[in-house]
C-alpha cells in the first residue's frame, strides 16, 4: 500500500515524458494504410483471390486488346479504369482516377474494397472485427454506383436505369457477381465477374430465333436477359447477324452480313447506335435468293469490330427452311 504513491509518481513521470515527446516532436508524415497490395489479400481470402485472378478485372491492364486500343497505354486516359485508384476514394458514381503504382494488377482488390480511412469495405453486414485488414460494412459495395465509376463511361449504368424492372434486378451483382458457396460452406459473391468474355453470360443475355413467315425467312435477336443494351459498355464490342444460303446442289454460299449491333465511336459519323436495348427484339426478313433451297442465320459476338469470324463467338444459329 505504501508503494502505491511511488508507483503513481512513476506512472506520472512516464505520462509527462510522453506529453513532452508529443509537444516537441514535429509530426512525422508517413502515409501507410491497410494492406500494401492486393497480393496481401490472398493470404486470408485465397478462394476469392483465385476467382478474381481468372477474371477480366485482373486482366484489365495486361489484356492485349486493351493494349492495342490504348496504343499500349500511351493513351494515358485509359488507365483510369484499367488501373484505378480505390473507387471508395470518390463520391458514389463519380469517375475514378488512375493510380501510379501496381498497375499490373488492373482492377484489383484494393480498387473496389479499400476504404478512404484505410479499412477494407465489405458488403458483409457483420465483418470480422479481429481481421487485420479492418473490414467494415459499406452499403455502397453492392450498389450500382460502385460499378458506375468505370462502367458508366460508355453508358451501361444509364442503360440499366432505363431497363425494364423485371430484367434489371437489384443491381449489377445479380448477373455479374452471383452468389457462391466456397470451401467450408461460406456464402459469398463470385469474383469472376462473367461478362463479355464469358459464353454462358452472353447466352443469358440474348437468344436467337428464325423461321419462315408469309414474307419468307426471318431471323430475330432478343435481349431477353441483360439489364442493359447488347452489346454494351465498350464501343469496340459488336454483334453481327449473318446469313448464308444453300443452292439446289447442296453447296453453301459464303456468310453474308445482315446487321450489326454496336455503339459507334464519336468520329464514326456515318454510323448510328444500333445496340439492342434491354428487353427488346430485333427481327428482320432475309430475302432468299433465287435458286436457294435452304438458309442459315447466325449471331456472332466480337470483342472488337475487326475480329475475324473464326475468332468470334457464335451465340446462336438457326436453320431457315421453307
Amino acid at each position: 500500500m505504501k508503494a502505491a504513491p511511488a508507483i503513481l509518481a512513476l506512472a506520472a513521470t512516464g505520462v509527462g515524458a510522453w506529453v513532452l515527446v508529443k509537444l516537441v516532436t514535429p509530426p512525422v508524415q508517413v502515409e501507410v494504410r491497410g494492406p500494401m497490395t492486393s497480393q496481401d489479400c490472398a493470404a486470408c481470402h485465397s478462394a476469392v483471390f483465385a476467382e478474381w485472378e481468372e477474371s477480366h478485372h485482373a486482366f484489365a491492364y495486361h489484356n492485349p486488346e486493351v493494349r492495342k486500343l490504348s496504343n499500349d497505354f500511351r493513351n494515358e486516359e485509359c488507365l483510369a479504369c484499367h488501373a484505378p485508384r480505390p473507387v471508395l476514394d470518390f463520391e458514389p458514381g463519380e469517375r475514378v482516377l488512375a493510380r501510379s503504382a501496381d498497375r499490373g494488377t488492373g482492377v484489383d482488390c484494393l480498387s473496389c474494397h479499400q476504404g478512404p480511412q484505410g479499412g477494407m469495405a465489405s458488403a458483409n453486414r457483420t465483418p470480422s472485427s479481429s481481421a487485420p485488414c479492418q473490414p467494415y460494412h459499406e452499403t455502397r459495395m453492392s450498389s450500382v454506383q460502385h460499378c458506375a465509376s468505370c462502367h458508366n463511361q460508355h453508358g451501361t449504368v444509364d442503360q440499366w436505369r432505363a431497363a425494364p424492372a423485371h430484367l434489371k434486378g437489384e443491381s449489377c451483382l445479380d448477373c455479374h457477381m452471383t452468389e457462391t458457396f466456397r470451401e467450408g460452406g461460406r456464402r459469398g459473391r463470385h469474383h469472376g465477374f462473367p461478362a463479355a468474355h464469358n459464353r454462358e453470360a452472353l447466352l443469358r443475355a440474348v437468344r436467337v430465333e428464325g423461321g419462315f413467315d408469309d414474307q419468307g425467312p426471318w431471323f430475330s435477336v432478343e435481349n431477353y436477359g441483360a439489364g442493359h443494351n447488347f452489346p454494351t459498355d465498350e464501343r469496340s464490342r459488336a454483334a453481327d447477324v449473318q446469313v448464308r444460303w444453300q443452292d439446289a446442289d447442296g453447296n453453301w454460299g459464303d456468310w453474308q452480313h445482315v446487321h450489326r449491333f454496336r455503339d459507334p465511336y464519336r468520329d464514326e459519323v456515318d454510323l448510328v447506335n444500333t445496340q439492342l436495348p434491354s428487353g427488346e427484339t430485333w427481327r428482320e426478313n432475309l430475302p432468299m435468293p433465287d435458286g436457294a433451297t435452304l438458309g442459315e442465320a447466325r449471331l456472332l459476338y466480337r470483342t472488337q469490330p475487326y475480329l475475324p469470324d473464326d475468332e468470334s463467338e457464335e451465340l446462336g444459329r438457326v436453320e431457315l427452311k421453307p
Binding site: 503513481l8 513521470t13 505520462v15 515524458a17 513532452l20
Partner: peptide, 19 residues
C-alpha cells in the same frame, strides 16, 4: 494532497528528464 503532490512532482520530473 500528498498523493496529488507526488503525482505533479512525478509529471514535472518526467518533463524535465525528457527535456
Amino acid at each position: 494532497r500528498a498523493v496529488t503532490a507526488r503525482l505533479l512532482l512525478g509529471f514535472a520530473s518526467g518533463l524535465l528528464l525528457l527535456g
